[in-house]
Nucleic acid binder design. Structure first.
Lengths: 230, 230
DNA sequence: TTCTTATTTAAGTAGGTACTTGAATAAGAA
DNA sequence: TTCTTATTCAAGTACCTACTTAAATAAGAA
């Protein structure tokens, strides 16, 4: 007890969790799982990797205690092990952002110029919701909407926005949201809607931040008969 | 803009910060730097590694934006780059702790049985401080005390507790604190003081948690003429 | 200037990581 | 039972990481 070997083992174990996050593909998986549980093939498609590789990454997350899985028939659904993992992921992003330069350039390269986009904060959205003068649009892929969304939001995945324009109420301002600040779905949706003459704005952050604040969430009845975890 | 390659680069960059934490020795360095800035040789001694290896680890932390350094004469002092890094480190510990089992066993192996130790929470300490009926003892190494400590605390490094017993006021309860929950200095101090017939208790957490809560801190005038960073 | 001390750099090695491909399970459908 | 589909496992390869030792800087002291 109290010797160097045990101390090293303790810190090695802590580092193990960090290592699990220390790979771009696994970081992406954690980011996606922050939206709710997904099957291996969905995840493989999202991160553009082979099933075998994705499976191996997921098992690494499992071993590190960052994710957990459940079987449902022939599919296996992965999800984050606990809200602590989401906090860890958010802390990592904030730390990297504070390291000004590097990451900022990469974000700018990926998201492009957002100067043309109208943005709204969570607090502003809450005010507008109370006033009841906005329509909220969830433009993430369907399974993520089903796993949990902002109460009253309509699900129109970003790829369907153009074809399903008529389903979006007219004459009311639209607020689109997606996975988070690094996600482009809402950007695309807002640009498309604006081009069509609608008044559209994107929520600055995404669903996980909404959930993390403890705000109420809504789940689809069809959400793969997975009860919301305690 | 918005293509897969850029997205991968973005997540790779985020993962880079996690990778920097993804090594037991570097995790230990972050933990120590959470107490305040230290020179390379002090850090090398703390983690029981060669100067060369420690230097390389520190430079990795530098590159990842987790640490920063300043030169003072012939020495180079490293410190955490921002409070966000401390939050990241805390989030990592909490995540690993939630992954019950694994880490718990390692903590138990390292810290041993604390059933015999009297413990006090930060809130309880604040009450006692207001009442003015406790003496607070900082049992961390001297440089850490100098870099910042709980206001009014006396510095008696754990290795000196036995020899400097007479300096510790008698007849008043003693609360010892150190680096944090994984640190044994306060445990040792409390056991020693109790054996000597003193009434001693350890603070559950350590100095970084005190600081993170935004509670006031005190710095030694001799603190290596480094101004507290903004 | 030379000497000393603190730190970094360079080069080398053993072991680990991230992918690949192809085969093995495991659950359900026919 | 056999067939199909989702997932995991096993083995191989190119690259990366953590340490070592020995030499190179860089600042200050003599």
């Amino acid at each position: 007890m109290g010797d160097q070997q045990e101390k090293d083992a303790l810190f090695d174990a802590l580092a193990e969790a960090a290592k699990a996050l220390g790979n771009g593909r696994r970081a992406q998986l954690i980011d996606i799982l922050g939206q709710g549980e997904r099957s291996v093939d969905e995840l493989a498609a999202e991160i553009h990797q082979s099933m075998a590789n994705t499976s191996q990454h997921l098992q690494r997350l499992l071993r590190a205690g960052l994710a957990c899985s459940r079987r449902s028939g022939t599919r296996i659904y992965y999800s984050l092990a606990s809200p602590a993992v989401e906090r860890l992921w958010r802390a990592l992003r904030e730390t990297a952002e504070a390291h000004s330069g590097e990451l900022g350039d990469l974000v700018r390269a990926y998201v492009g110029d957002r100067a043309d986009l109208s943005m709204i904060t969570r607090d502003e959205l809450l005010v507008r919701l109370r006033q009841g003068d906005v329509v909220v649009l969830d433009v993430r892929p369907q399974p993520e909407y089903e796993a949990g969304h902002i109460p009253g939001a309509l699900s129109v995945p970003f790829s369907d926005v153009k074809s399903r324009l008529r389903e979006v109420p007219q004459g009311t301002e639209i607020v689109a949201y997606c996975r988070g600040p690094y996600c482009l779905y809402a950007d695309e949706a807002v640009r498309l809607l604006t081009d069509e003459g609608r008044l559209a704005t994107r929520l600055e952050e995404g669903f996980p931040e909404w959930k993390a604040t403890g705000l109420p969430i809504e789940q689809s009845a069809t959400a793969r008969n997975s009860p919301p975890r305690p």
